[in-house]
Amino acid sequence: MLSVDSVDVFYGHAQALHNISLELKQGEFAFMVGRNGAGKTTLLKTICSLLSCKNGSITFENKDIQKLRTELLAQQGIRYIAQDKKVFSGLTVKENLQLASFAAKVSLTETIDMALEIYPEFKDLLNQKAGMLSGGQKEILLIVRALIGKPKLLLIDEPTEGLASIVIKDVFRLLKMMKGEVSAIIVEQNLKLVSQLADRVYTLREGHMVKEISNTKECAIMEELEAYL
């Protein structure tokens, strides 16, 4: 479904990614682990065209997507959810969903029904400014927003970062619900979550891909992953 082949990415003269390759099959959840500055976010941003790569190729459903703009990729089903949990804080929760439904050409009623099915707590929050939501609720809103219009691939950057453990459970439940329905590449440091959901794990260090684990059983061994954090 997605193929990243020998990609090099630079910030000015500094090389952030070196010869990175990865594969993702339909319905798979691939996790990326690695220390800060390893290049995980850079890779997600490169896949969704927020950054451009100097060498290498990125193909999605056998089409070269390197030259396509982010908004066009989103329309084709590749949605990026940033790490900073930035919702449209000046708009209400309902309006956040409305923009997503407008972009995906799905009716607002259908969108709201879907949002409430995923996270019933939104019912009392629909008319609240999204900026007033808790960190966990913001993350869930971001994921729900990205799910509208049935995307094919989600690129989720650190969904549980900075969240209380009780809220992490909600995010985990949501990711588990999505598994099999949509493909995803998720940057995550919470190894417990990774070990329970990953079909593949890619480990990055200083812009290099140091290990790929594509065996589900191996992915479940947290000790193995810990060595790369």
Partner: peptide, 24 residues
């Protein structure tokens, strides 16, 4: 209006608007 909401959203998070598939 939707156009107005897109602008308000872009004031908060222009990347987020693009990632929804809206040509801001």
């Amino acid at each position: 209006t939707i156009a107005g909401k897109v602008i308000v959203a872009a004031l908060d998070d222009s990347t987020g608007v693009r990632c929804l598939g809206i040509d801001q």
